[in-house]
């Protein structure tokens, strides 16, 4: 009896601690105390945005968040966009992110960077996600646990709607890596299935899916271009392979890459963003939000971005 009582008290104290921590780390509490910053998960980050104001989101892995700069889309066209790319993201990670976005946003364009389609995805099992969801409801601390980092981070600077500025130049030669071939490097089958699910989700939510491949000597070649072109045709979606559009975009690998041709730095990202902005402007009807209620906070963000661009 004594042992049972002791165990009950132990678990009771544990539950109180965990519930308390869940409250302290919840986005609501953190917003109130202005402690939200860049390293939190995407749901927490996006919860900070005015609901249903983001018109363009960028999905993918590191190739996505190093190639599209939302502040520049805002500056040039007044487009409210958000870069939701994640480090080493797999297709199921990306699907989760898109689902999280849809909880308080309804973007009209989903720009999907294609590199993750070639990354093996140790697909998380449905049952595992189901259990996670239940645990998030019972113990919110399991969902918001990572928000502790915000207590140690500058809450204002350095994060521009999913984009961070990298001035680093780690150059490589402008070699010819997109050599024309009939070979086709197909995307991983499981990934294609997940992409179809994302496409379905886009359709259900009135969004246009646009596939794009950011500049990367390390990750792209013509066989991959053929593989990606094939699935774009099958899904009947647009596909922009920036690696083949260098006459227009003019990426210079001696100045525009941060890590020898793998990812772009801010100079490369500016060029890519300029191309994408023009492409969206020419082909889609996206609202210019510079005269809406979000303009003030977005302009402030742009000012900070411009300052950081100048102050290397």
């Amino acid at each position: 009896m004594k042992k049972i009582l002791s165990a009950t008290i132990f678990f009771l104290i544990l539950i109180i601690i965990l519930v308390g921590l869940g409250f302290l780390l919840s986005p609501n509490y953190l917003f109130k105390n202005q402690m939200v910053n860049k390293k939190s998960d995407i749901s927490t980050k996006l919860a900070k945005e005015e609901p249903y104001t983001i018109d363009i989101i960028v999905l993918g892995d590191s190739e996505s968040y190093t190639s599209i700069s939302p502040p520049e889309l805002w500056r040039d066209y007044g487009y409210a966009s958000y870069n939701c790319g994640g480090i080493g993201a797999t297709l199921t990670d990306i699907q989760d992110v898109y689902q999280a976005v849809l909880s308080n946003q309804q973007p009209k364009i989903v720009l999907f960077e294609t590199n993750a389609l070639y990354r093996v995805d140790g697909r998380r099992k449905e049952a595992d996600n189901f259990i996670s969801d239940i645990m998030h409801k019972i113990l919110p601390v399991t969902k918001y646990h990572d928000n502790w980092k915000m207590l140690f981070q500058d809450t204002r600077k350095g994060y521009y709607k999913g984009f961070t500025i990298s001035h680093t130049i780690d150059p490589c030669d402008n070699k010819e890596y997109m050599i024309m071939t009939d070979d086709v490097e197909n995307v991983i089958n499981d990934n294609y299935d997940t992409l179809k699910d994302i496409y379905k989700l886009c359709k259900e939510n009135g969004a246009s899916l646009v596939l794009y491949s950011a500049h990367s000597q390390t990750n792209y070649n013509y066989a991959k271009h053929n593989g990606l072109n094939k699935i774009a045709k099958e899904l009947n979606v647009d596909y922009i392979d920036m690696n083949l559009l260098n006459d227009d975009i003019k990426i210079d690998y001696t100045t525009d890459t941060r890590d020898r041709g793998d990812h772009l730095n801010v100079y490369g990202a500016s060029k890519s963003t300029a191309y994408i902005g023009k492409y969206i402007n020419d082909n889609y009807n996206i609202t210019d939000r510079r005269n809406t209620n979000i303009a003030k906070s977005w302009d402030e963000m742009l000012d900070e971005y411009n300052k950081e661009l100048i102050n290397k």
Binding site: V97, T142, H145
Partner: peptide, 20 residues
């Protein structure tokens, strides 16, 4: 010891959306 290990895992464990 038990609380330390459990809370460390729950708060500082690398799991969820931000980690693989």
């Amino acid at each position: 010891i038990y609380y330390f290990v459990i809370i460390m895992i729950v708060i500082f464990g690398a799991y969820g959306e931000a980690y693989k």
